[in-house]
Design a binder for these strands. Structure first.
Lengths: 123, 123
DNA sequence: CCCAAATCAGTAATGATTACTATTTTATTA
DNA sequence: TAATAAAATAGTAATCATTACTGATTTGGG
């Protein structure tokens, strides 16, 4: 059902080696350094597939871009409204996925996004 | 700085009277019933302004649409990957924004999205 | 080696959102 | 009430992240 591809491997590798939360286009530019003729569509398709299978996390914040995260363990994302940075934060509360059972909802994963202003932008 | 407009009033009224989490276009269609020649751009502009001022909540989930919520108090959103429904859920944990973080981040509001499958779609 | 399914590169199309402009509305002051 | 500037609007055009499509290439199992 799911075959190996060196493109997908390279995409995962790029994501593994960054601590930011890049967009598809950023990853595309990065992967092009090793696979110059890779297609942007290929990047999108593989990212969607990896997110679907739970290997990576897809993150939608209020900047109009889809962001990706190699870390799938529950954690919070602090999104600076000014500079656009997405900062990881430890989650020292119980994940929400435990809560939603009384509604008959089967949770798969939870995204926490805190909007605000980061340290740098505040001065 | 901010003047009254009957268009903004109508947009807020539509949002106040729905328990779903509509998109700009859905709100546009609804407001057109009372203001037939309102412009879609006007709906977008006012929703952005209302979200910016904190009167409503802007919600980005993995369906490519921006959704809006009249309820600004912290609560979780259960998003069904199958039918696309967004269901409100009580938040019986301490909101993330209250948590002190040593990252120097100034939180303004937090969005909680739980992805999964809803009761109906599960059968 | 052979074949079917999966994946790809390259390109075109989609469509939610934003930008632009000339006109109208609002709030204030005289 | 009239005059004025700022804010908001309708209508339309432009943007651009993402998706869809197509014919070629790669993968994996027998």
């Amino acid at each position: 059902m799911k075959n190996y591809s060196k493109q997908r491997e390279a995409i995962l590798e790029v994501l593994r080696c960054t601590d930011t939360h890049p967009t598809a286009n950023w990853i595309y530019e990065k992967v092009r350094e090793t696979i110059p003729n890779i297609s942007l569509g290929t990047v999108y398709r593989n990212l969607a597939q990896l997110a679907e299978s739970g290997e990576i996390l897809s993150l939608h914040v209020a900047d109009g871009f889809e962001h990706f995260d190699f870390v799938t363990a529950p954690h919070a994302h602090l999104h600076c409204k000014q500079c656009g940075a997405i900062i990881d934060a430890k989650l020292d509360i119980e994940p929400l996925s435990k809560l939603s059972n009384d509604l008959g909802f089967t949770p798969q994963n939870t995204i926490y996004v805190v909007y605000g202003i980061c340290k740098n932008c505040k001065q």
